[in-house]
Every structure is written in structure tokens, then in C-alpha cells.
Amino acid sequence: MHVNYWREVHTTSLGRIGLGLIILMAATAALAPLLTTCQPSAYTGAPFAAPSAQHWLGTNDVGQDIWTHLLYGARTSLAVGSGVALLSLCLSVLAGCSSALLGGLYDRLLMRLVDALIIIPPVIVAILAAAYLRPNTILLVFLLSAFSWPGGARVIRAQTLSLKERMPVYAARTFGASRRRLLFSHIIPDLGPLLIALMIQDARRAVFMEAGLSFLGVCDPTIVSWGKMMQHALKFVYMDVWRWWLLPTGFALSLTIMGFTFTGFALESALNPRLRKEVSHAGN
């Protein structure tokens, strides 16, 4: 059963490209202040300047450096993405594991709620809530997490139910291990790869939804965001600026989402035994 998932992912070409893209974007976001000399809010040049040595991607309609915006936009996207991934994972684990371990009426009621929440289209409700509440980044993370945990909870519950009956967990229970010990030292470690797959999926969706919401104009006006940049640039599509304003932003967003999609796909094919061609075991 113990498959070396890490090896499976980083030896497939899709997985390698995906991981590379994620690392690239994370590095860009982390090193943003070193890669540019401007501040995102500073007016550093003439409006609509073409790319030059000073402004690599030119300037926007009020003379702010687009390259700087692109770098700081990566921060917003990844912060929202990883925030939502972590928070909704915690909620999923909490709901899924408790439901599987406690069982009974609690399990039935919670799963009924999860089944109902899964059908609700998340982007639409997020637009509604965000339009009224005008959220800052932290509130946005909470809002998006609130709609993305149910899917994970169901998968985790199913996996926990099967893990619960396996020999090591059964043995631990006969030694008198408490439910908490069973959960933290026996079940959650075995859920590992699944949890990472869920996090990647949530992060991808969150990056996409953040961009979509800011594309619609429902976002924190003080924060640089790729979606907002694209919405803004789309207004000037009749000029030449789209070449260095609209397209690089769109590609940056697409590459980030692609990074998550590819890694997630490689990991999922490693997790699904039927799709796996040959297995490389741990310690090979």
C-alpha cells in the first residue's frame, strides 16, 4: 500500500512542470521587493508608456509600473490560495474525521449538510456575499473556505472509515488508544497524500475565484490583484497597451492555475491505483 507518492509525482512530466510552476510563482511572490525597484502604489512614469529598460512592461493608465503590479499580484493570488487551502483543509479534516469516528446521528446530520452544501455553486454565492460585504483579503479567505470544505470532508470521511478498520488502527484501539490518539498518530498520517491532493485542488479553485471576483470588481480596492488588473486593462483594449498589460497578467494567472492543475493531476493519478501503470514503492 505504501507507494512513494513524491517519486510518482516528480518523475511524471506533468507533475514536474506543475511543481516547477508552483515553485516559480512562490519565488516570484516571495522575492517581489528584490525583483523591482518601484512600489506598487507609486506613480513612476508617464501614463501608457511602452516597455523600456526602466519599466519592463511599461506603465498603466496612471503611470504605475506594470511589472511591479504583476509581482505583487502573485502575492495576493498565492496568499488567498494557500490561506483557503489550509483553512478549508482544517474544516474538512475536522468534519470528515469526526463524522467517521463518532458516527451515529451526528454523522448522518453532518453528511446531509455536506451533501446539500456540495450542490450550491460556490462562485455565485461568493459573488453575492462579497458584493455586500466588500471583503478584505482575510475575510475573502474565510468566505471562500466556507464554500470549499464540503467536498473534501466527504472524501476524508470515506477514507477515514476505511482506515479505521485496518489492522494498525484496530491494534492501537485494542491497546486502549484514545480517539484523539487514533486520529492524530494513526489516521491523519495515512491520509497525507490525499490531504495534499485536496489542498492543491482547493488552492487552484481559490486562486481562480479570487481572480474572478476581482475581475468583477468585488475586491479590496487597496490590494493589487491580477483579476483587477485584467478588468482594468480590458477597458483600454482599443490601444496597444494590452500587449504588455493584459496578456502578461493573464498568462501569469493561467500559469499559476496550470501549476496547481498539473501537480494535482499527477498526484491524483498516483493516488488512483487503477490509473497507475507501474508502482514505485517507498525505498526503491
Binding site: G212, F215, L246, L253, S254, I257, T261, F262
Partner: peptide, 15 residues
Amino acid sequence: IMFFSGFPDFFVGII
């Protein structure tokens, strides 16, 4: 197809 699925719909539309 995996490559295209990485693009958000509105960006594909814009292109």
C-alpha cells in the same frame, strides 16, 4: 487539453 484547462475562461475569451 490540460494546458487549455489552466486558462481561466475569461482570459481565453479575451485572447
